Computed example of a mutant assay.
Amino acid sequence: MFELKQSEEILKDKRRLRWACRRGMVELDVLFLPFTEEVYDDLDERQQALFRRLLTCDDPDLFAWIMGHQKCEDEGLKEIIQVLLARVKV
């Protein structure tokens, strides 16, 4: 019973995460949604927390950081952006 409840919570969290990946910019959607589906579960807990925190940032900042137009000053966010970009280049 505990495992079933735990599985339900994981699914709920994943649905929330997918919803947070839906952005106002299609350029971000095409990065975040596949990353969530294909990579997120393989990240360690710290990196998952960084990705969730990244999703709380404003779209213009995210776009500027990902495209290299601006430098992200937050070391943790910079790390998860590099993980995201490395995955996209594969």
Rank of each mutant, 00 (worst) to 15 (best):
T56H: 14
F32Y: 06
E27I: 00
P34T: 02
L33F: 07
P34I: 02
R23D: 05
T56Y: 12
Q47N: 13
P34W: 02
R22Q: 15
L55D: 14
Y40S: 08
L31W: 06
L50A: 00
D29G: 09
D42A: 11
L43Q: 08
F51K: 01
Y40A: 06
L50C: 04
D29W: 03
R53S: 14
T36E: 08
T36C: 03
F35R: 08
L33Q: 09
L31K: 00
Q48S: 07
V39K: 05
V39N: 01
L33I: 14
M25A: 13
Q48E: 09
F32T: 06
M25H: 04
F32D: 09
R53V: 13
D42I: 05
V39S: 04
V30L: 02
D29V: 04
R52Y: 09
R23K: 02
F51V: 00
V30I: 12
T36H: 05
P34E: 01
D29M: 03
L55E: 15
R52N: 14
V26D: 14
R23F: 01
E45T: 12
R53F: 13
D44I: 07
Q48T: 05
E38S: 03
E38N: 11
E27T: 02
A49Q: 15
L54E: 13
F32E: 04
D42Y: 06
L50V: 05
E45R: 11
L28I: 10
D29T: 01
A49T: 15
E27H: 00
E38I: 08
L43C: 06
R23Q: 04
P34R: 10
F51M: 00
L31S: 07
R53D: 15
T56Q: 15
E38K: 14
A49W: 11
R23I: 00
Q47M: 08
R53M: 14
L54M: 15
V39H: 05
D41V: 03
G24M: 02
D42N: 06
R53G: 13
Q48I: 04
R22H: 01
D29P: 04
D41C: 06
L43W: 04
R23T: 08
D41G: 02
R46N: 12
D29E: 03
V30Q: 08
R46S: 12
Q47R: 13
L50D: 14
Y40N: 01
G24T: 06
D42E: 08
D41A: 11
M25I: 09
F35N: 03
L55Q: 11
E38Y: 10
V26G: 04
D44E: 10
L43V: 07
R53H: 15
R46Q: 11
D29N: 15
L28F: 08
D41Y: 04
P34M: 03
A49G: 11
D42P: 10
M25K: 01
M25V: 10
Q47I: 01
R53N: 15
P34Y: 09
L55I: 14
R23S: 00
E38T: 07
D44Q: 05
E37I: 04
G24N: 12
M25N: 11
R22I: 13
F35V: 00
F35S: 07
R52V: 14
V26I: 10
E38C: 05
L33G: 01
T36M: 05
Y40R: 01
R22P: 03
D29L: 08
T36K: 00
D44W: 05
R53L: 15
R22D: 10
